[in-house]
Every structure is written in C-alpha cells, then in structure tokens.
Nucleic acid binder design. Structure first.
Lengths: 190, 190
DNA sequence: CGGATTAGTCAACGACTGTTGGCCTACAGT
DNA sequence: ACTGTAGGCCAACAGTCGTTGACTAATCCG
C-alpha cells in the first residue's frame, strides 16, 4: 500500500510486525492460547491496533496463516526417489524459516479450532492431492493414497514438533528420510 | 468407597457422572475449551461440586484421563502379522467404547497443554516401548523404531478422528489394516 | 500556517473463566 | 424426635479475554 506519491505508508511496518508476532504466537501456543494482548505486546503496539488493522482475532488468524506447502514439481524426480524427496521437503518446510511457521501453527490450532481444521482439509485437497495425482497412475486411488501419505507426514510433524517424543526428536534428518521415505514411497506406488 | 455399614455412598454416583461428562467434553473439545460449567451441566450438577470432588480443573483432567493402551501380549502373534495386529488394535481402541475416549482426549489436548504432552510421552515410554521391546531383536533400536511406529499410528488417529481428512475417514477398517499394517511391520522388523 | 487525515494510546465494557464460601436440605445414628 | 453431617445449590469474586470508542500525537497537503 502506498500513498499518492508512491511512498510506502508507515503503517505497513507495524502491520508487518503484527503479522510476524501473530505467526510466532499462533505457532507456539495455538489459536486459543495465543492472546491478542500477547501478540500486541510482542509487536510493541496497543492491542486495539490489532483490531484496527485486522478487524478481529479470527481475521488476524486468517491473514497470518498461509499454508503454502511449496511442493516442487515432482515429474522430473525419478520414481524410486519420490518418497525420500517428499520427506526431505517437509522436514525442510517444518524446520526451515522460523519466521514462517504456518504449517505447525495450523496443526497446533487444528486440534481444537474447526476453522483451522477446514483450512487443513482445503490445503490437503488443493495442494497435496493435485501434485500427487500428477505422478500417480490410477486416478481412482489418488484420494486414498494421498490420505495415507498425509497420515504419515502429519504424524511425523506431530510426534517430532508438537508432542516432542524423545526418540523422534533425536533422529537426524538423514535417518528420518531413510526410515520414513520408503513408507511414503509404498503409499504412492503401491 | 463405602460407609461404616458397607453401603456405597450416594456421592459415588455423581462422582462417576462428573468423570463421564468430563471425559466426553475433554475428548471433543480439548482441555482449554472444555469448561467446568459445561461439564457440570452435562452431569446435571452445580459447577462448585466439581471443585469439591476433584479440587481443580487440572486435577479433574488428571483423574479423567486414563491412557491405557491395553496392548495385548504380542509374543504369541506370528511375527509376520505384528503390523496388522497393532493397527487393528488401535483402530478398535479409538473407535470402540465412546465412553472411554482417553486416547483421543489426550491427543486433542496435547496440542496446547504441556501436561497432556508429558502424559503422552510417559504413555509412550511406559506402555508402547516395553511391549515392542519384547518382540524386537536389537535393543539399541527399540526407542527409534517405537518412535516411528508412534508417528504412523498417531498420524492415523490425527487425520481420521481429529482433522477428519475425507479420504482417511472414508476408508474402512479392513482397508486401513491392509495399507498401514505393512508400514508398522517394516518399522518393527526392518 | 492551518486543517485534515493517519497512527497510536488509554480506559473501559461485557462476557466468560476457574474458584470460593455461605446457606439450605435430607438423611443416618442415637 | 433431635442432631450432626454429607450432598448439593446459589451468588459472588477476581482475573482474563476480545472488542469498542473517545482522545492525543504525528504527519501530510494546500
């Protein structure tokens, strides 16, 4: 957003800092326990400003979350490596930029918030399924196989980043790829 | 609990109805959104009675949750069938008696509540790991393999019962056993 | 400069939460 | 019949939440 002279408005800075604080809080506390007051404090701003900029807590959540799986084009990946490539991609996605915790934030909130759940289902349908459909033979099995893939990948995110089960936390990236990759591979090309 | 004459006290009935209502609410809403007032209303009792009987919301949660995996003795199961037997067991455990939703209740609460998370980690260590250790050869790999098993089984519970991803919900018991069983099998005997 | 728009602060409202203490009622033991 | 006690209800407290509106400070524009 710019004014008539093409200069950026000062408000864009605080708007951005609110979004950053919101993403961090939603990711670590979930929708319910992330309070507007705490987000405002992190952004060094008055709680009422959050309302002015985003209207309500629900709209702030909607604006903060951007569940982009950033799935690469898998058509050029050798079929035998699909499983490991997918696991590696999601590990990077979860453990990469801590500024963009959209996926874990959504997962943590989905346990209690129906809006977050619907958002996850939509992400599954509009992002994961099409990409997997493009590399799978039988179109009748795409939904089921994608569901199985999601169950293992989300289970990994759950046990490693939310529940923090010690053995799953202790495993390094390469071991996880080695162990979980074949599972995904079998769900894809069964 | 009985009085001097060996008769059951009347309070045991309400105590039980509070526990039942608490389990249902905690399972469907999670720790935060399950309010004492709602639980009391379900049990047709005054909210203050909940405090009298259980002291606090946290103590009520501790009393309501009983994460017993009820794992059978696996030593008599043919090694090749271990994966499918385990998947079948947990499907029954989640979808059996709706009066005892302890496992899903714990899972839903664990997303935000650290006490619930610690309880899940303890259940993993004290119930799943020993049973799997008894049927696995290499003791050094027990923790890691148990973690992988948990990641798939919890991922299944998550996508099927909490997120309710349509393709995972649509699959019937036999299909799930057929598809997920081999994954567990490979994590166990890999 | 002077007025208008923008950015931000402050205090409060109403709803809901877990929790507490006082009061009433019904029954058990004598 | 009387009394002590256990079981239960009611009303309120103190805190927190999302949200609102009035007010001040800063900036832009003519």
């Amino acid at each position: 957003m710019v004014d008539k002279n093409g200069r950026p408005r000062r408000s864009d800075a605080t708007r951005g800092s609110i979004l950053l604080a919101a993403r961090t809080r939603f990711a670590s506390d979930g929708y319910d326990r992330a309070t507007i007051r705490a987000i405002a404090a992190d952004a060094r701003i008055d709680p009422s400003m959050v309302m002015r900029y985003f209207g309500s807590k629900a709209q702030l959540f909607a604006a903060a979350v951007d569940p982009d799986l950033r799935l690469p084009d898998l058509s050029s990946v050798p079929r035998r490596r699909l499983g490991k490539v997918l696991v590696a991609h999601f590990l990077d996605r979860w453990e990469g930029d801590p500024t963009d915790d959209s996926l874990l934030m959504l997962l943590r909130s989905a346990a209690t918030d129906e809006v977050a759940r619907e958002r996850m289902r939509h992400t599954f349908t509009s992002q994961l399924m099409p990409v997997l459909a493009a590399i799978m033979g039988d179109p009748d099995k795409v939904a089921q196989r994608s569901g199985l893939v999601a169950s293992q990948l989300l289970g990994l995110a759950l046990t490693r980043h939310i529940l923090r089960l010690p053995p799953v936390v202790a495993m390094d990236r390469d071991s996880l790829i080695e162990q979980v990759g074949p599972t995904i591979q079998r769900y894809l090309t069964g």
